[in-house]
Design a protein around this nucleic acid. Structure first.
Length: 283
DNA sequence: ATGTCCACTGGAAGTGGA
């Protein structure tokens, strides 16, 4: 009867956002939280505050930029890897993966890729190719897998308030979208879109032009589930209240709940009856 | 082009990245 809440949150600076993070953990009590954009070296990660909040964690920091972490409550994250396979020369901290109970959790911060075209966009696409290659292995692992993070991709024009002023942005390029589509084609379920196929859902509102006040958002934080995890999907949503505070991150936490029972048959039955009513539409 | 925010350097305001 119990469920597992798994969230992804681009904090945009773990030190600047520590009060927000702790308030969110306290209020929403995710069992697993994937964080991105720590913008801090590993030594600067506030593990004592996070432990005091009741969480264990693994993390991979970097000076000024990037940085990812997986927080867990009531379980220990067992690190599987702290980089995406395929390029030993890639020194960005953008991926960490752990076993948490019977789950495998991948936490990713895909390169933004702007300005486009250019070397940063090339790097984005190369990184995406590595994610697609690794995604195929994860998908077929036989374990329930959640691949969560800031993908820096707006999958379709339905996932943005208005594409007009973003047409040249790396987040909307056909090449970026094609990579995302190819990843999904392995069988992954885009959890929020699956449960809310006709809702406008945003997870990011940039700091410019009063974007939050106008609800001028983008959906770029995604939780992808392989078949074993998707069979247990109960609900999904966006914690918009986090974006409405003073000095917020430009992203809001985005989450799913999975049936904690291992019986996929039970979970499938429950998902069929509860998914549509389990949470208010995150518009 | 612009808008805003975070971190770093250097010890103020400018730069890079998003």
């Amino acid at each position: 009867m119990t469920s597992l809440k798994i969230a992804t949150f681009n904090v945009n600076g773990i030190r600047a956002r520590l009060p927000h993070l702790l308030r969110w953990l306290e209020r929403e009590q995710p069992d697993i939280a994937c964080l991105q954009e720590l913008k801090a070296v590993s030594e600067g990660f506030p593990i004592l505050d996070i432990r005091a909040a009741g969480y264990d964690a693994i993390w991979h920091g970097q000076r000024s930029w990037n940085g990812v972490a997986i927080l867990t409550k009531g379980a220990t994250p067992v690190e599987i890897r702290r980089a995406l396979p395929g390029d030993p020369d890639d020194d960005h901290s953008r991926y960490v993966e752990a076993e948490v109970g019977d789950l495998i959790v991948g936490c990713l911060y895909l390169p933004n890729g702007n300005p486009q075209p250019g070397p940063k966009f090339d790097y984005k696409l190369r990184w995406f190719e590595r994610l697609i290659a690794h995604g195929a292995e994860l998908y077929a692992s036989g374990r329930p897998v959640v691949l969560a993070g800031d993908y820096n991709v707006v999958p379709t024009d339905f996932d943005i308030y208005n594409p007009r002023s973003w047409l040249k942005d790396a987040l909307l390029q056909p090449e970026s979208r094609e990579c995302y589509r190819r990843l999904l084609a392995q069988g992954w379920t885009d959890a929020l879109r699956k449960l809310y196929p006709e809702e406008r859902i945003y997870t990011f509102w940039d700091y410019f032009r009063q974007s939050w006040q106008r609800n001028a958002g983008l959906r770029i934080d995604h939780l992808l589930l392989n078949a074993e995890a998707a069979a247990r999907l109960l609900a999904a949503g966006v914690d918009r209240w986090v974006r409405d505070q003073e000095k917020p991150s430009d992203h809001a936490p985005t989450w799913v709940t999975l049936d904690a029972e291992t019986s996929a048959k039970t979970a499938r039955k429950r998902a069929g009856t509860q998914a549509r009513t389990a949470a208010p539409a995150p518009t």
